[in-house]
Simulated scan of single mutants.
Amino acid sequence: MRIVEGAGAWRPAADGAANDWAEQLRTPDLSVGTYCIPAGGTDDQSPHTEDEIYVVTAGRATIVTPGATAEVGPGSVVFVPAGEEHRFTDVTEDLALLVVFGPAYGSRGSAAPSPE
């Protein structure tokens, strides 16, 4: 057993970066991290080679995919299949997302840049 410290907690980006991404846990089969976008910020991530689940722990935004658009806030859980375009827009409050990748982020090779 392991307690995953800091997972899902808001933290501002360091050194002038637009957003913050930190991986808190990695095993071959999954990885867990936190992705933070400040209010008014822009999500510039690309599709990933792994399935992912977002759990909104703080903030409000809209998630946009080719097939749907939805408003999200604390407690929202979003599944994005591998390879699907997706982006958080209209970030009205500092957004903190617990992100679970399965299998672990980048393990399928040719991964897009991490969500930062």
Rank of each mutant, 00 (worst) to 15 (best):
Y105P: 10
V99W: 08
E85Y: 10
P81A: 04
S76R: 01
H86P: 06
A82F: 12
A104W: 07
G106V: 10
L95Y: 09
A104I: 10
V72P: 15
D94I: 06
G73F: 05
F79M: 08
F79A: 13
V100N: 08
P81N: 09
A104N: 09
V80S: 04
A82S: 14
E93V: 04
V91N: 02
D94Q: 11
V80P: 09
D94L: 06
F101W: 09
A70R: 14
G75N: 14
T89S: 10
F101H: 14
A104V: 12
F101C: 12
G106C: 07
V72G: 10
T89G: 03
H86G: 00
T92D: 07
G73L: 05
T89C: 02
E85V: 00
E85P: 07
G83N: 04
D94H: 00
E71N: 11
E85L: 08
V72F: 12
F79R: 07
L95M: 07
A96P: 00
V77C: 14
T69A: 15
P74W: 04
G106W: 01
E93F: 02
F101E: 12
D90C: 03
P74F: 00
G75Y: 05
L98S: 07
A96H: 03
Y105S: 11
F88H: 12
E85R: 05
V78H: 12
F101G: 06
P81I: 02
V80G: 09
H86E: 11
E85A: 05
E71G: 11
V77K: 00
T69E: 15
P103E: 04
P103H: 05
V91S: 01
V80H: 05
G83P: 15
V78G: 14
Y105E: 12
T69V: 13
E71C: 04
P74E: 14
T69M: 13
G83Y: 02
R87F: 05
V77F: 13
E71V: 04
G83R: 04
V78N: 06
S76F: 06
V77N: 06
G102V: 04
D90W: 01
A70G: 09
S76C: 11
V100S: 02
V80W: 10
R87C: 13
F101L: 09
